[in-house]
Design a protein around this nucleic acid. Structure first.
Lengths: 112, 112
DNA sequence: CTCCTATATCGATGACTGTCGATATAAGGG
DNA sequence: CCCTTATATCGACAGTCATCGATATAGGAG
């Protein structure tokens, strides 16, 4: 198991497609770990709901109801995971949803 | 956030289908938390790979390489989550995959 | 250069979890 | 009854994480 800040989503063997070995299970579990926090899910969906699926950090802090350092921490995790792209424009930083990045996870949950 | 032993998967609003509120995000995050452990994913896939998608606990301990109490703990979590059904037969306990239980999670990851 | 705003990093803290060994419970055999 | 086997529960421990306040960094405005 990687630490949460070091996970890059890159998978995956399907859960119901035959016995998984420990390594594949660990890779997939890491991916789910990124999604297993409400703040991160809310951030993903908030960014995705903006026009162009991108959003300035300054517009995310207040809707989340968490401190700015905490939001910054979660955005970093989502960026490292490959779910959000980071772009700096002047003083502001914009995060953008990377399209199709959840598809591999979705297919790992496919019925046998 | 529920504690891991109290989670029952029951969801879900799609992540990319508009801004989620805190409550929906928490429910979905809880569901992913159940899947964010390699031992649990391996258990799920091992049971699913058996004929009839069911399996005796005694046949799970050794392939997992974890102690019997630890395996028992994870099985309880999966059962409480609604992913595995528990049935006692004499001295043995069999766990069986509940069909279709991952579908709701899969659809929560659908592209917008 | 100085101030202000936006974002990231740091350090600390409280909570939760995965793991184990020891033990309890339950069921069957002699 | 006692013994053995299968499973669950208990208590403890080590590690990780979400969160915060304080602070650093960076960029623009005046």
């Amino acid at each position: 198991m990687k630490k949460i800040a070091e996970i890059t989503i890159d998978c995956c063997a399907p859960v119901l497609g035959g016995a998984m070995n420990r390594e594949d299970a660990t890779t997939l579990a890491d991916a789910f770990k990124v999604l297993s926090d409400p703040a991160r899910l809310q951030l993903l969906s908030l960014v995705a709901a903006q026009p162009g699926a991108e959003c300035c950090v300054c517009d995310l802090v207040s809707p989340l109801g968490l401190s700015q350092p905490t939001v910054s921490h979660h955005l970093k995790v989502l960026n490292q995971a490959g779910l959000l792209e980071r772009e700096k424009r002047g003083t502001w930083v914009f995060y953008k949803v990377v399209p199709g990045r959840l598809d591999a996870l979705r297919s790992a949950l496919q019925p046998a």
